[in-house]
Design a protein around this nucleic acid. Structure first.
Length: 118
DNA sequence: ATAGTGACAAAAC
DNA sequence: TGTTTTGCCACTA
């Protein structure tokens, strides 16, 4: 199946699901991987729709500052933060302290296609 | 088809 | 230095 066949949202979910445990990424990173770097807002919006999708770890997706911008959309007030801390992330004041350490870039980890990097 | 929105991002002030 | 504004693209009404 071609991911292109899926809607933009589905693509976002696909990448979000690929986020490894204890890692986080930014909306822009996902958007860029999808080829729509300027639609970072769409990524976040897709997350909003993913509210009912437990398959999508939206709590691992934050803005480029490592701030849990979308925590307001979760059930509790700090549910998103709790989940991240549970995964080993150092979160304080709704912000990931070691964001730069656990940051996971899809375009880097997933690598592009062909597998032939060089 | 038009208008409005939205969990971002980066530039401008 | 922090705050404000625009841009951006895809989706919904």
């Amino acid at each position: 199946m071609n991911p292109d066949n899926e809607n933009f949202f589905e693509k976002v979910y696909a990448v979000a699901r690929k986020i490894p445990y204890g890692r986080v990424t930014s909306y822009g990173a996902i958007a860029r991987y999808l080829g729509t770097a300027r639609s970072a807002r769409m990524v976040g919006w897709a997350m909003n729709a993913c509210n009912g999708r437990e398959d999508v770890p939206a709590h691992r997706v934050v803005n480029r500052k490592g701030i849990l911008t979308g925590k307001h959309h979760f059930e509790g007030t700090n549910l998103m933060q709790q989940l991240l801390e549970n995964e080993g992330a150092e979160v304080e004041d709704s912000r990931i302290k070691n964001f730069g350490e656990i940051f996971w870039d899809p375009s880097e980890e997933l690598g592009r296609v062909t597998g032939d990097k060089e």
